[in-house]
Design a protein around this nucleic acid. Structure first.
Lengths: 241, 241
DNA sequence: AAGTGGTCTAGACCACCAG
DNA sequence: TGGTGGTCTAGACCACTTT
């Protein structure tokens, strides 16, 4: 029932990082110090520190010590990740600001994106996600009300649209397009960036049970965000095309 | 100099998986069997199996055994695609222009990217890929000569660096970072674009057998290229996190 | 009952870095 | 020289599954 010792040690260290008590660069307790403090063997302390290092939270230097790692702002391209959690994982403060929330008539272009035969009404949402008060993502999203009727009733200060959609509709298929753009004046204002800063635009469509559920454009200021992915290929290695 | 015992055990198991001798579902040797076979302690065998499990190669069932994992349906925005084939598929004319081809001393930053303990010499290549005569990709690449000694002898007008590397080194792991940038004057000149055009920069590192083989930056003019992916999720659907 | 993985201990030797 | 991480050993107890 009770968690393994190495897990307790990991959690102890993670709490200090998440709370901000141990900032990047801070030296964390050495293996021997953990042995004393928790009355555990060195192998157990070693496992805790080694796994946190593999997870990217710490970096170790033989003969010197173990330190809290600087965590770059990166997001996985392979997964639908909840930006609120991602920011919280970095120990930073997340906040959401809703800018628009309407029901709109689909334009022909939108109807095509939603694979609709006849134009219909769509939920429309514009919000800005901030990390420590700095805008890092502008989200512009249309949602098919037939797929997720309750979508517009949610409090998106409490649950992000992505999290809500994941929880309520199984994602069967995903489409992503990434491009570099120069933001429009309106986008610049919402993200609070200068005139010459390019942005990354991530366009996402997701399907559930054969129907397009949502079409979203996520705009990231170049100076504040990069998309990241890392993965191991299968041993059989059918990676190349 | 010689590799740690747990690493040797991992490599031993990975070779059987890579070669196809142990297919998904196959039971791998138990900890006690590895203890006998390699004359190691159980903790060392345990570490090897535990790390391979964390890496996604194995799955363990207490009281039953350890098994080769089914390859997860893994698709990516960023598969390794051969740009020459991609352009040919569109029925357009592909051409490559080599701009630089040198052997350079690794800077400290590069040595770190290559996970080298001591700086060493690297192959360095800069080339421009064109579609119907228009530059669409600027490729700046460093290659670890220990991993691919013949790399610099190739004729990259006939085979792209990506295609050559795929053919000669199994890619075990890939890391991608995508960001929006304003190109430098040199990049602008090579890509023949105007002053105000942002670009997409795709940074790629690839590993083979635990070593970094190559570090590449691919720069795409925003007006001429976007990254695209579409895929179905696996039936088990562990997509969201 | 025998085998499996999951965890943990109390030592040990080594290479490395600091003062 | 003492502290650090990196590795390894030879035991141990436990919960669990299979036979």
């Amino acid at each position: 029932m009770t968690a393994p010792l190495y897990a307790k040690v990991k959690e102890h260290i993670l709490e200090h990082i998440r709370s901000g008590a141990w900032t990047p660069g801070t030296r964390v307790p050495s293996e021997n110090e953990l042995v004393e403090h928790f009355s555990i063997s060195r192998m157990t302390a070693n496992r805790a520190l080694r796994e946190l290092t593999a997870d990217g939270f710490l970096s170790r230097v033989p003969g010197v010590g173990t330190f809290v790692k600087e965590r770059p702002a990166r997001s996985s391209l392979l997964e639908l990740r909840n930006i609120a959690e991602e920011i919280a994982q970095r120990g930073h403060v997340y906040a959401a600001h809703i800018k628009k929330r309407q029901t709109v008539e689909a334009t022909p272009a939108l109807a095509e994106q939603f694979e609709m035969k006849h134009p219909a009404r769509l939920f429309y949402l514009v919000m800005v996600h901030t990390e420590n008060g700095v805008p890092v993502q502008l989200e512009e999203r249309h949602v098919n009300p037939f797929a997720v009727p309750q979508f517009n009733d949610q409090d998106f200060a409490k649950i992000t649209p992505t999290a809500y959609l994941i929880a309520h509709q199984p994602v069967d298929e995903l489409e992503h397009t990434v491009e570099a753009i120069m933001p429009t004046a309106e986008q610049r204002a919402l993200l609070d960036i200068g005139e010459d800063e390019p942005c990354l635009a991530l366009h996402r469509r997701s399907w559930s049970r054969g129907h397009v559920v949502t079409v979203a454009t996520l705009v990231y200021p170049a100076s504040r965000y990069a998309l990241y992915s890392r993965y191991k290929t299968s041993p059989s290695g059918t990676l190349s095309q």
